[in-house]
């Protein structure tokens, strides 16, 4: 006997929902299991005195986002606009617009 359409639909939706719940449960387990990895990573950050993630290596101002200055993305001339693609992905660090030396 063929299944009712509603049974097929509700079964599929319940299946998808269970898959999603399963994924989220597995996720929680993975987060717990990753604690030792993060302990090693923080030790490395302390040892090397790192300040940034190595996410974009194409330009200094995206490689070391927190260490950058306001002029670098615009290079050397007023009309020389930022031209590295990853510059369009990231926002400037909030502290960039203050805490400058008076000589800026």
């Amino acid at each position: 006997m063929a299944l009712r359409r509603s049974t097929t639909y509700l079964g599929t939706t319940a299946g998808l929902f269970l898959v999603l719940v399963g994924i989220f449960l597995h996720t929680s387990w993975e987060v717990l299991a990753s604690r030792p990895i993060y302990a090693r990573k923080t030790a490395l950050v302390r040892q090397l005195e790192l300040t940034d993630l190595c996410l974009f290596t194409e330009a200094s101002y995206t490689r070391h986002l927190s260490m950058t200055d306001p002029s670098t993305p615009f290079q050397d001339a007023p009309m020389s606009l930022e031209h590295f693609p990853t510059g369009a992905l990231v926002g400037p660090p909030r502290h960039l617009m203050r805490n400058h030396g008076y000589g800026d």
């Binding site: 923080t42 790192l50 993630l53 260490m67 306001p70 002029s71 400058h100």
Partner: peptide
Amino acid sequence: LVLKDAPEIVVQHTLTGRY
């Protein structure tokens, strides 16, 4: 998580807006 042990303060020297 990983940068919570980054240096507490980093001091840069700036000249004409650049470090």
